[in-house]
Design a protein around this nucleic acid. Structure first.
Lengths: 123, 123
DNA sequence: CCTTGACTTCAAGTATACTTGAAGTGCTAA
DNA sequence: TTAGCACTTCAAGTATACTTGAAGTCAAGG
């Protein structure tokens, strides 16, 4: 699969994909002419990248993970620890976000009340 | 209330508070000697800043909001629109985060399964 | 054949949000 | 009174994540 197709499917830009590659997060094979050819395994990894990035992992941390992902068996405990750690962090984020959304709703209610007051003053 | 106290209470640093002020998000009164004195109204605004920042609003957007907040009544519809817009964005973020957390949990299950396989191979 | 458009590399630029450093002022407690 | 700490300003530096620009290659269609 070509870079443009991948970019489109993942709602990314082609420079972003090249940037991720430059940072060591991806490494699609190349055709003879140098053109990137994304394989299913690359897309699977991209799924993971998009997922953990949304959870708040930095590209640097993601790189470390994909690095140890290669050397398989010995790194399983570390991989588990990283993922569990990230899960905890993400859950905290989730709780904070839920809280902030509540506050935002309260604020909206306040503004709506103010608007009503405004209208009654004008009438 | 002094800057250090505020920073401590909001889990921010004093340079961050000064930076927010520089960006026009806050404007605590000063004592004669120039020292910032945060009033309850400033803390309320800081509550709001922390809240919408967690929802994903940029400092730039926050500044715009606090700017129109001053000139009160005419800006009520715009304020409402901004808040409602942000609420929608935040809810999308929330949904994506929930989704990513699910994937993360699946990944953890996978790694745990791999570890068990590893163990059974070794035994 | 030659233009068009997607691909390539590499370097430099941008946006956001802080952080750090230098240099100085002023209250407080030994 | 003097040491020390928190306060001040202003400028410059850092981290993260891209984005943009320049210059060039290559395959397909008119």
């Amino acid at each position: 699969m070509k870079i443009e197709t991948v970019a489109h499917q993942y709602h990314l830009t082609t420079p972003t994909l090249r940037y991720y590659e430059q940072e060591g997060l991806l490494g699609p094979v190349r055709r003879i002419n140098g053109i990137r050819d994304y394989q299913p395994a690359d897309l699977e990894r991209l799924d993971f990248i998009v997922c953990v990035k949304r959870c708040g992992m930095t590209l640097h941390q993601i790189k470390h993970f994909v690095d140890i992902y290669q050397q398989d068996p010995a790194t399983l405990p570390e991989r588990l620890e990283i993922l569990q750690n990230q899960l905890q962090v993400s859950r905290e984020k989730q709780a904070q976000l839920a809280d902030s959304i509540d506050h935002l709703q309260d604020k909206i209610t306040d503004v709506k009340a103010l608007q009503t007051t405004e209208n009654s003053v004008l009438s």
